[in-house]
Design a binder for these strands. Sequence first.
DNA 1: GTCTATAGGAGGATAGAC
DNA 2: GTCTATCCTCCTATAGAC
Lengths: 240, 240
Amino acid sequence: MTQIDPKSPAKPRQRKSSRPTSSPADIRPKAPARLLDAAETLFAQRGFHGVTTRQVAAAAGVDVALIYYHFESKSGLFDAVLERRARPLVAARRESLRDYVAGARVVTVEGAVAAFINPMIDFSLHGDPGWKRYFALVAQIDNTPWGGEIIHRYFDDNVQELIDVLQCALPGSPKRELYWAYNFLAGSMMLALSGTERVDRLSAGLCRAKDLEAVRLRLLNYCAGGFLAMVTAERLSGRA
Amino acid sequence: MTQIDPKSPAKPRQRKSSRPTSSPADIRPKAPARLLDAAETLFAQRGFHGVTTRQVAAAAGVDVALIYYHFESKSGLFDAVLERRARPLVAARRESLRDYVAGARVVTVEGAVAAFINPMIDFSLHGDPGWKRYFALVAQIDNTPWGGEIIHRYFDDNVQELIDVLQCALPGSPKRELYWAYNFLAGSMMLALSGTERVDRLSAGLCRAKDLEAVRLRLLNYCAGGFLAMVTAERLSGRA
DNA sequence: GTCTATAGGAGGATAGAC
DNA sequence: GTCTATCCTCCTATAGAC
């Protein structure tokens, strides 16, 4: 999955065209972007092994060989899909956490959790539709044995930033407890953003997974309450 | 994945041998069970599409053709893997919830959540090692678009029983809120039982995903606190 | 019930013309 | 940068002997 071997010496991706300047009307949707979009959609639906390079190429409306020209391999395409949106997402969450800390009179668990989850919910609600597929893909990888390395590479710095803010809100709590609580938060959040509509069927339509404003509100209350209850119980029990 | 077409008229699986009675020493580990064990392990590691029938057969030490004899197809094998442990798990959770309601002076959120999650944690800790792989497999399917139908078929009755008990503990709360909260619980729980060790790496070893007693304690406090905070916030806000 | 053998096709990836 | 043509491995599944 994740390619470790840097076998091919010259990577052709993204090299500048050798044309003197840019042609006047150069407004076509380029092949790499089309491939990334198609791959994002298909991988999110059926997973890495459930999609063939031919299917991706067909959905993108380009030739199969272009996958190997631009991304070296199927795995390279997969990694590129993940990387493309990881950067803006991490940047948005970092900024959100910093803005919160800079502007808050007192740092609270609710505030920290909100600053962490809001960028994702806002991207999913108001960003381009690819974000929904991206989160569905990340949610799948997240519950996978081989996904750990990928998630770590792109997102763990961001989580440490959240933990630091939470530590300010709960100065007496051991970090260990914050990591556990974050792990629970991550599971809830990823299921909520996975695009599966299990809760719709389970509740016979009372809940709608697509109603992300409902998710935002409840996930915030639930996770903040969970954090506080967990660290409180820990303190009372005299562990640590 | 899930086979809808009942194409082959006669299903050969589990038919009685035509031998007059049972032979004296008939203690070999049968092929179907060996195949289910191998498939459980491999599907849990790499998912349905990431595993080939040849790999399953090789791991089981039997011939590939036996997959098709006993389970009709690769999908049939997959379904059989899921079904095998679904029945005892659902029964154990049902019994756990009933025992709790029967024995409790007052029904609490903590008690209901504990009665729901304890069977899984106990199976994973003290049951045969296949349970760990099984939960890893279910965790993967759970975050998948196509997994909804499977999870629903095997587990949703069980969840309704939990919701009913929670409704006793929180008589004033709309069921809608309980379904939302359960969905968050499910995400946390499945990540905790997925066998991924992301929290180990994230916390630099402070937390160990394999320490299920640590998970049990914290998941209980976290989820119970989350439930209460969520329904309290809902009540205060005057929605409903 | 279990094996051998094979059908029949789809998979990832590449060479080389344009 | 893009397409045509192709390599060759590996797949699911079945037929039929034992």
